[in-house]
Nucleic acid binder design. Sequence first.
DNA 1: GGGAGTTATGCAACTAGTTGCACTGCACCC
DNA 2: GGGTGCAGTGCAACTAGTTGCATAACTCCC
Lengths: 181, 181
Amino acid sequence: MALEHAILVSLDERSGSGYELAQRFEKSIGFFWPATHQQIYRTLKRMVDLGWVSGHEVTQDGRPDKKVYEVTEAGHGELARWLAAPGEPETIRHDLSVKVRGASLGDSTALIGEIARHRDLHAERLDVYLAIEKKDFPAPAALSGRRLHQYLVLRGGIRAEQALVEWCDEVLAAMREDDRR
Amino acid sequence: MALEHAILVSLDERSGSGYELAQRFEKSIGFFWPATHQQIYRTLKRMVDLGWVSGHEVTQDGRPDKKVYEVTEAGHGELARWLAAPGEPETIRHDLSVKVRGASLGDSTALIGEIARHRDLHAERLDVYLAIEKKDFPAPAALSGRRLHQYLVLRGGIRAEQALVEWCDEVLAAMREDDRR
DNA sequence: GGGAGTTATGCAACTAGTTGCACTGCACCC
DNA sequence: GGGTGCAGTGCAACTAGTTGCATAACTCCC
């Protein structure tokens, strides 16, 4: 499981509470490993039991208290172990492909609409990623270390969304053409 | 959930037993919606309860008996409903991206090896898909209906794997360059 | 003083997917 | 007759992820 490891990576960058982690997962890390606050709280608890992180209460004024977690020695060890360990390539589950495959069994106009909607959603995400690239990484050739790694992950998101948009366009063109005949 | 719907699509193409379905999921449908035989048997049972498929025992000689399932009226209705219904874009969970993001926290040589391994795995899959494209769809412009849809889904797999291979190459080049400095 | 909004944590119940094992029947080969 | 291997179905126990709800403290605005 990689949620633990995603949390370790994130906490290593900067210690934080469950709530803060959940927010980070809304963007950046969450782009390629989404998680809800429930999952994060539960996992943090498990990670404390495993000794990978330690948490301590922080009293705040003006807002409720929180528990801030940081990575322990053991946590760093586990992270290093996991980074070097071989993993399976992702098993992708692509709903829309199942729908395209079954297209002849339903209303093709409705499905074309659904695909167009997904195309736009992916185009939107792509724009978000491209904006981040432009703003945060104006000179990629000069990057190194952690900043380089962040950039490379973003590049993965860009490539994936680009591929999806282009695929949707291909599907739309072919299905509309087929409908006309 | 789409496993039910993936099974409906597959059974609509051709009725079959749980075992046969599991084999189909090893290829074609399973490329973008993997499922084990366990999941398939359990889901088929649930689908019988829902009235979406009906199963009957088939006695065979030379091999064990089997239960062959086919899609019912209600199953076709559900499939049509689902095809037109809006769905969420996939939540991708990409392990390797988490690893790249955490690269500075472990042994970079080992991680580069791991990425190279994934690159090759994806390149292999891509070759498989390209071989199918060449063999089964030599004249894509002439396709229509179900055959066209199968082709389009294959195109999605090709684009996805291509994007992954290219991304791995980009990551490898950048990380090796960064290591040298 | 009352409601909406944000920060903050969590339980309970559910659905989905994985892993390991168990059983049957038959064929085919040594 | 003994091993391997394929066809065929399934249970049990587990891990992972989702959804709905509950609660608390504090701010800001009407």
